[in-house]
Design a protein around this nucleic acid. Sequence first.
DNA 1: AATAAGTAAGTAACCTGTTACTATCTTACA
DNA 2: TGTAAGATAGTAACAGGTTACTTACTTATT
Lengths: 212, 212
Amino acid sequence: MTNKSSNDMESAVRVRHSAEERREEAVDAVIELSRERSPEGITTQAIAERIGVTHGALFRHFPDKASIWMAVFDWLGARLGRVADTAFAAGGEPLLILERLFHAQIAFVASHPGVPRILFHELQRPAGSTLHGLARGIVGAYRERVKALIVQAKAGGQLPPGLDADAAAVLFVGTVQGLVVQSTLFSGELDMRDAARRVFPLLLDGFRGASA
Amino acid sequence: MTNKSSNDMESAVRVRHSAEERREEAVDAVIELSRERSPEGITTQAIAERIGVTHGALFRHFPDKASIWMAVFDWLGARLGRVADTAFAAGGEPLLILERLFHAQIAFVASHPGVPRILFHELQRPAGSTLHGLARGIVGAYRERVKALIVQAKAGGQLPPGLDADAAAVLFVGTVQGLVVQSTLFSGELDMRDAARRVFPLLLDGFRGASA
DNA sequence: AATAAGTAAGTAACCTGTTACTATCTTACA
DNA sequence: TGTAAGATAGTAACAGGTTACTTACTTATT
């Protein structure tokens, strides 16, 4: 947001930032650019422009483009982890935490529209690749935490003992992802939070079981 | 799989196919290639190679690359529509149709792993683009059909009258998409059908409502 | 003075689309 | 039926553009 005017006045004020700073700026730039264009289409040129630097300079801070993406994924994993941590930290009954987690996750991707696009993009990489593994790790860890909550709720009697905890965790995570897909398709950010509020009770009822 | 040796023996047997045939072959090639690599990364060169033709020949049958993708989406919309049609045609109670639709959809994408990748890829295109609109239309139409079934089930007394039909439709469609995302991430095709079987009952219980 | 950050101008690879030419099929007609 | 003509499918090579990455040189900071 601070650049864009770097073409006026040439390099009148050649701002110098530390390597560390530039690396963070680059990650932010990628997240922002993902909001507008397809992640695969983000060029090193565009990243450099956005942070107000020639694109040669970018390669002083990253050995290659792949490692820029690695940095983006590190950021992403850390942020998503923190979102979950906060939801857990507030405490309360397992089902309450689950609900908080659900909405927190939705709110996070709603306020960072680039994030789901990056994850979807990752789904297209060959299954073996490093970044695919990273994405897998992030979602997998999330699913495990959800499953733990469900098991806990079963133990506490808030969910029926016959509930398939694995299936429930898959459904929970899948619901978040499904909402993201639909909101991306129908591109209404506010819509997503609203849809989440209406969908969650149904999800919970499914866990509680009607016919069991 | 049948190409790759086209450099031995030169053009020993120059096979000629009709334009119509080549166009279909190209679409098939794109679907197949999407299984392995990112759809955005599929080059006209690769498509041509796969159908055993120089890439100049490809442009005899399509004016440009975009229209290849248009053809792919036509194919996709038609096939997905047919899957839904069959599920409806078999008849029965609304909830039964819903279940059949769910599993049919899952089975289809499980047997065409390239399809979800193409749709995910589409999610990354700028929201206004033609192809984004096509994807939107496909998913939107599907959701409407699901909603109609739910309304019908409410009328027939198989679902509670207080059920939020819109939210339920979103959840239903979202569940399919969530399963696809997870199976792509954890790349087990068989896994997806199994997960679908375990998840569906939970979904249905959610519709029936536990607390209402 | 030394080091870290930045620039400008490459380069090699690759990608879409074009063009000038060639081979094959179809069909009209002698 | 045989063949010339026209249409159709295919090829090879290239043009123009973009992309990731490099290199030789410049400027700021400590």
